[in-house]
Design a protein around this nucleic acid. Structure first.
Lengths: 348, 348
DNA sequence: CTTTAATTTGTAATCGATTACGTAAATAAA
DNA sequence: TTTATTTACGTAATCGATTACAAATTAAAG
């Protein structure tokens, strides 16, 4: 098999009897090179099939044009969509996206982060794992002066930019929507309160109740994970209460789905008896025969904006640490699982 | 802000008054280094917080420990799951995964491929775009001696390994399943026949019909894209035919979903009047109230195996080009959209 | 106590591109 | 024509790690 015949600027310089420095400058559009030489070099490079060795360049410049993304799992609609957004925004700028999974384990998160730093990455995007409490590894990245941007799931670390959803508002909107549909005993299936996002959704929920003069019933707040079964169990538990809910606001679509399944198996009508609202606008929510109302997080936009924040950061003066906090507005897609007033499915 | 204080082997060598070569050897477990020195270096490296500069190492060795993955879109359940498999298999070996999207455009595919080759990637995994016909860009990668592995969607190029589903068998199985459910006028919603996968599914379909003594009705073969609307239109078109189908085997889950929606709107009962089988086992298929029978492609396994093929390839003698063709078996998940005989949903 | 062999470490080149500094050539000014 | 300026290009160091080759040290053998 033919060896990789790597053509270098030295090969070009030999062929043209000029110095490698001149070749380098010509290729980099350095103004101190005559038009004649520049053209000659460009042509020769083309015909010799020269390809710049980005490793050498990276070693010299300290920039790799690679960024890393750390997410719990990449095959979740939300995360893969964010990554798509990042990729599409950065590719035109010559960046490549390296992906890593933490599997929701802070241990993996630390390993992946260190591995990325070690690879001389130009920046890191991350959504912290559920088990992340300590921020030492993040501060370390910061100490190495590597731009770090949180998206969706963040943790408070001074100097770190973030792009997140307004989860408080989202929780508020979802709850208020249910109130306007005539519900007044709204249960909440929360996620892990250790994560800011779930905490904020919960706070938004409480705030909406308060605004409309309702008091949250502690029995109606149930912590779930993002699994279907967990939603089923939650309903089973809720229907043990003295006061049965007439609506469920779930902080996740899968638990909302499970809740709906359990409600149906109990012959409870949706949305007539109980309204259900999910969260994330997972693709499946709109495909159901009973399409599920859900909160959209605009993941692809989130990725694009995170990428833009990164680009600003690397363009700016290195000496100054920019901390930018972007908060995206959620969008509620009202569908049949809660839209008592709508006649036709909004598939938006 | 504090500058990146990069500790190099020279810093260690100065501190210990030994040569950088010795430091390098000590850190690399070179046997020609005395135990005493090795330990001393290891300790000093640790306390100085030394981190190997992988760029320098990569430049010297020619290996970056990065691999590239090119897929049409990363936020498709199938592709993101394959990527997850690749990532999980390669991370323990010190590799990082760089992802690129082709957006189903061969132009982008070529750009991304070249960009990856330029980055001195150690290997490339790819699923070709629908518009890929010419293989010059792929041969170029091969000429540069970069391991290339196709997964799912491949194109015949000598010397390229591949990991694919047995789509013929899948098409055959799906069709035979429908025949066994008592259907004898089975329509097929095909994908783009330019892609081998769809061609093979179609061939498998025809072969199953033939085996059981049926002749395919050309009017019952409809080319769709993988969109819901396309499935709806297909049903509309099929129900214009003189002979209405009593089953639909769709080469994609979204078109199957569209077909089901359209059938329902025409008050056609599923599975009593018409059975429907989809393809890919997208998450939503099992969440529907009428869960959809679908063919599972074991994407995560596909990714893992593709990664293993890659590892074998880089371990083997560089001089020899290994061409390995792995074919995975599909698995049919029979659900209510076609399982006339099953009582309860198989959610598997 | 030499001589030889085995260990351990140092020197310097290398990977490929970039760039500060310096010089030769070309042009403008005197 | 001579001097001053530009303009264009070359020399060599640099990024950080690896490694062929050589040298120095130690151990073994005679």
């Amino acid at each position: 098999m033919k060896q990789k015949e790597k053509v270098t600027i030295y090969d070009i310089s030999k062929k043209l009897n000029i110095s490698a420095a001149t070749v380098s400058r010509a290729l980099n559009q350095n103004p101190k090179i005559s038009e004649k030489t520049r053209k000659l070099v460009a042509e020769t490079a083309l015909e010799m099939n020269y390809k710049q060795n980005r490793l050498a360049q990276a070693l010299k410049s300290g920039r790799t044009n690679n960024v890393g993304v750390i997410v719990p799992y990449i095959n979740r609609s939300f995360f893969s969509s964010v990554i798509r957004g990042i990729e599409e925004e950065l590719t035109p700028h010559g960046y490549h996206v390296i992906i890593c999974q933490s599997h929701e384990e802070v241990k993996n998160e630390i390993n992946q982060l260190n591995a990325l730093l070690n690879t001389q990455i130009d920046g890191i995007f991350m959504s912290v794992s559920k088990t992340t409490k300590n921020t030492d590894h993040i501060k370390k990245a910061l100490a190495e002066n590597t731009p770090l941007i949180f998206f969706d799931r963040k943790i408070e670390v001074p100097g770190v930019s973030s792009v997140v959803l307004d989860d408080f508002k989202a929780g508020f909107m979802a709850t208020e929507h249910l109130i306007k549909e005539g519900c007044n005993k709204i249960a909440h299936l929360s996620g892990d309160i250790n994560l800011e996002i779930y905490k904020n959704r919960y706070e938004g929920y409480k705030s909406a109740l308060k605004k409309h003069g309702f008091t949250p019933n502690p029995e109606h707040i149930i912590q779930t994970n993002s699994k279907i079964e967990s939603g089923q169990q939650a309903v089973a538990q809720l229907w043990e209460c003295d006061e049965k809910p007439d609506a469920i606001f779930s902080a996740g679509d899968y638990s909302a789905l499970g809740a709906i399944q359990e409600l149906k198996s109990r012959n409870i009508r949706i949305p007539e008896d109980v309204c259900v609202v999910g969260f994330s606008n997972e693709p499946f929510t709109k495909y159901m025969e009973l399409p599920i109302t859900s909160m959209d997080q605009t993941p692809q936009l989130m990725g694009k904006i995170a990428a833009q924040v990164f680009l600003e950061q690397v363009k700016g003066t290195k000496a100054v640490s920019i901390e930018k906090k972007v908060v995206l507005s959620p969008e509620l897609f009202v569908r049949n699982s809660s839209g008592r007033s709508i006649l036709k499915t909004v598939t938006g």
